[in-house]
Amino acid sequence: MGFRETGVIKVGELERLGLMPSRERLKKGPVVIAECPEEIPCNICVDACPFKAISMDKIYGIPRIDWDKCIGCGVCVAYCPGLALFVVDLSKYGDKAYVTLPHEFYPPPRKNMTVKLLSRDGRVLGAGRVVKVWSYNNTWVVTVEVPKEYAMEVRGIWVEE
């Protein structure tokens, strides 16, 4: 079953749609991944990126990312109304990677908190430490430390009360 049946997109599907950066690019440093596979009428991310790394041929195009221009700053993560943008950083030595994701639940996440790591289908993949948090118009942009093998799996967090 594909993402239109399940609401969960697989890495393979992202690759086929040209939405995945190359392995080399991923290793170089943080980079954005747009999990926005449908031609919806939205181009907020195009305007949001201060580095003009995102483009679209028409208002309902799929966001195309220039992986060389993107520095993984995460600004677009906060703006995207679909909460579909994530920054993945696989460049650090050791067994940790960093995922920056949007979060809109109470209580607010705080730096150094340990939070639950959630997969695209809501499974708890373990716990991770919040290394950075900022917010824009009530969307929290949270960077969490995750085991490297989960960098392409963790897409949500849950903060226990």
Binding site: E5, T6, G7, I40, G82, G156
Partner: peptide
């Protein structure tokens, strides 16, 4: 229906928190 009617991004946002969408 056999497919989710709304946009994928809205469905994805819900699935992340473990809500089942039963087509």
């Amino acid at each position: 229906m056999p497919r989710i009617g709304g946009w994928f991004v809205h469905a994805a946002k819900l699935r992340r928190y473990g809500v089942p969408i039963l087509t």
